[in-house]
Structure formats: C-alpha cells, structure tokens
C-alpha cells in the first residue's frame, strides 16, 4: 500500500505582483526520490522552501503525514539549501552539531549518525576542520551530513550537485540512492535531466511556476509522445522561461531618480549597430 508522506494541495506563492507558483498539487510517497526539474526561475527553490517551512503558501496547504502542518513536522525534515549555509568559523562537526541541537537531538546520537555517514563520503578526517577552506564538494557533503544527522524522514536537496566535480557528484548520488534503499524520502531539485533520470523514481517538471509534468520517466514519455526525456522536457516547456527573480526591492521615486543620475548611457556606435540589426 502506498503511504503518502507529504501532500501539497493547490499551493500558490505570490511575492508582490509576482506569482512564483501556481496552484501546485503534489503527493510525495514514502521511499520516493522525486526530481524537481526546471530552468532557473521555474519555482523549484520556492517549492522546496515551502516544503521546508521557510515560506508559507499564499494559497493552499501543505500537510505532512497524519495531517500535521509543516511547522510541526520540521523535526522530521532535513534541508540542504543551494548555498549549503555553513559557518566558516565553525568546524564541520560543530556545524552539524549546531543544527542537531536545534533539532533537539543529543550530541551522542548526532555524532554516531555523522560518523556512520561520513565514512562513505570520505569526510571522517575533515569533521574537525573549520569549513572556511572547504571545496564546494566538501561543503555539500558537510551540509548533507548536517541535514541527515537527526535522521529525517524527508530530505530536501536544492541543486546538490551544482558545481561539483564528477567524483563528488557521483559519491553524493550514491549516498542518496543508499538513503532510498533504507526507506528514506528525498526531494531533489536539479537542472540536469540525465541526473534526474539516473536516480529519481519520479520526475516533476516545473516551468514558470506550473507543474508541467509529473510521473516516472515512462509516464512522461508516454504523455508527451516523445522518445527522450529531453524531448519531453522541451515539449512541455515550449513557452519562454521567465528569468530568475530576486525579490523586488521597494524603490522610491527619489532612489530611482538618484540611481538614474549615476547610470551611464550605451555608447552611440553600439546603439547604432543594434538599431541597424
């Protein structure tokens, strides 16, 4: 019997005039690895932030198993944001322990769990080091250890392999697959279709705030009458992707005028070329 871990019902997210997510419906089953695939600005990170409780939905609701709100269920969620969010003046272990303590987990439990997971990631010797000099790969691994130290039921990963070398990305993917074998549930955002196809049990294609595709690779290929996932993705996201937004700063007339005062104009030759083209 399929067990639903998390339910997203008719969830929209609006920032000012910008509607970042439109009426998203999604059920996440226990033991799944869900790949959120989409271009920059599609709404993947916003959805992950809604799932982790950093944002509240403008409309709709998100419920954990047994109808629990996200706020109450945070204890059972582990998050690795895109920026990793490590404190450079703390050691890797101190970073992990800090979050574990806020999760209410004892240091002994967190250390036991971290030691077990650090070994396959090759991080055992680095746990006592300050994270300041860590490579991108080491930072991702530390953030992953931090997110797993309290044994979460749901792991949310935002672009975990972005900027990683091939070996590090492979190690990370192996660990995610191992988590699945142990019954863990992972929601994983990525740009890489091949990567999603490789490790995810289900793929959710997000484009301009809408879910355009949701299912196994086979389901998506059948629905779009395409032979490759890339073809299916292109088919589902034909309209132009909106750019990635930063939350708009409220700009007064004075600050706009002031900014304009110190803004140069384009050289005339360049404008001429543009116009002739």
């Amino acid at each position: 019997m399929v067990e639903i871990l998390l339910t997203v019902r008719n969830v929209s997210k609006q920032f000012g005039d910008l509607r970042v997510l439109n009426s998203v419906d999604l059920d996440i089953q226990k033991g799944e690895i869900i790949g959120l695939v989409g271009s920059n600005g599609a709404g993947k990170t916003t959805l992950l932030r809604l799932l982790s409780g950093v944002y509240l939905p403008s409309e709709g609701e998100i419920r954990f198993e047994n109808g629990e709100s996200i706020e109450k269920a945070r204890q059972r969620i582990g998050v690795v944001p895109e920026s990793t969010g490590l404190y450079s003046r703390l050691t890797a272990w101190e970073n992990i322990r800090y979050h574990s303590r806020l999760y209410g987990v004892s240091d002994e439990f967190a250390w036991r769990r971290t030691s077990q997971l650090a070994s396959p990631l090759g991080m055992t010797d680095s746990l006592a080091r300050h994270t300041k000099g860590f490579s991108r790969g080491m930072r991702q691994k530390t953030a992953l250890l931090r997110a797993l130290a309290h044994s979460p039921h749901l792991l949310l990963l935002d672009e975990p392999t972005a900027g990683l070398d091939i070996t590090s990305a492979r190690t990370l993917k192996k660990l995610i697959l191992k988590l699945k074998e142990e019954g863990g549930t992972v929601v994983y955002s990525t740009h890489q279709l091949a990567e999603a196809e490789q490790i995810c049990t289900r793929i959710v294609i997000i484009h301009n705030g809408d879910i355009r595709g949701n299912g196994t690779v086979k389901d998506i290929l059948e629905a779009t009458q395409q032979t490759t996932l890339e073809g299916a993705y292109v088919h589902l996201t034909k309209d132009d992707a909106r750019p990635r937004f930063e939350a708009e700063e409220k700009s007064t007339k004075i600050s706009s005028w002031w900014r304009q005062l110190f803004t140069g104009k384009l050289p005339p030759t360049v404008r001429g070329v543009d116009e002739s083209e």
């Binding site: 932030r49 982790s52 945070r74 969620i77 690795v80 944001p81 920026s83 969010g85 806020l102 953030a143």
Partner: peptide, 13 residues
Amino acid sequence: ERGTLEALLGLPC
C-alpha cells in the same frame, strides 16, 4: 549574504 540564514529558517525553531 553568506546563505546560512536559509538553512537556519528551515529548522524547528
């Protein structure tokens, strides 16, 4: 700016 706040806001505090 360092991106550490986002990780913190997702914690059960």
